[in-house]
Simulated scan of single mutants.
Amino acid sequence: MRLHHLLLAVLFLVLSAGSGFTQRVRNPQSCRWNMGVCIPFLCRVGMRQIGTCFGPRVPCCRR
């Protein structure tokens, strides 16, 4: 029974930690808070877009 409680706690931590990264970034300050970088045009190789910085043309990218 204790194993079930432990697994439930681990599952809760995994799901709650991932929920913060699913929200879209919409300005440069929140981009930096989410460990991202504002890069004009396209994200570099090895990075993915997590939102936008100033408008739809400037993506916020993170490794």
Score class of each variant (00 low, 15 high):
44 R>W: 05
28 P>L: 04
10 V>H: 10
42 L>G: 11
7 L>S: 13
45 V>C: 11
45 V>D: 15
26 R>S: 11
16 S>Y: 01
53 C>L: 08
16 S>K: 04
58 V>H: 10
3 L>Q: 07
36 G>D: 07
33 W>H: 13
35 M>L: 13
40 P>Q: 11
60 C>I: 04
9 A>W: 00
36 G>Q: 03
32 R>A: 08
24 R>A: 14
9 A>D: 03
38 C>Q: 04
42 L>V: 14
47 M>Y: 03
14 V>C: 05
36 G>V: 05
5 H>A: 09
5 H>W: 10
31 C>G: 13
15 L>T: 10
50 I>Q: 02
34 N>R: 10
5 H>T: 06
11 L>N: 04
14 V>M: 04
51 G>C: 06
13 L>D: 09
16 S>L: 07
9 A>I: 00
48 R>G: 13
33 W>K: 14
55 G>M: 09
10 V>G: 10
7 L>N: 12
21 F>M: 03
26 R>E: 15
22 T>I: 15
9 A>M: 07
9 A>R: 00
28 P>T: 08
47 M>C: 08
61 C>W: 03
18 G>M: 00
15 L>C: 09
4 H>I: 09
14 V>S: 03
39 I>R: 03
25 V>E: 01
25 V>F: 02
39 I>V: 11
43 C>A: 12
29 Q>L: 09
32 R>K: 15
29 Q>K: 01
63 R>A: 13
56 P>A: 10
17 A>N: 07
12 F>A: 15
28 P>E: 11
40 P>T: 09
13 L>N: 12
63 R>P: 07
45 V>M: 14
41 F>G: 13
54 F>D: 07
46 G>M: 03
46 G>L: 01
44 R>Q: 14
40 P>A: 06
10 V>K: 10
18 G>S: 12
47 M>W: 02
58 V>Q: 09
18 G>V: 07
41 F>C: 04
1 M>F: 08
29 Q>A: 12
50 I>F: 01
62 R>M: 15
55 G>K: 04
21 F>I: 07
40 P>K: 06
54 F>S: 13
54 F>H: 15
60 C>A: 09
42 L>A: 15
63 R>W: 06
29 Q>F: 01
31 C>S: 13
1 M>G: 08
34 N>F: 03
42 L>Q: 14
52 T>P: 01
3 L>V: 02
62 R>D: 08
45 V>S: 12
46 G>R: 00
21 F>Y: 12
2 R>D: 12
4 H>Y: 08
1 M>R: 06
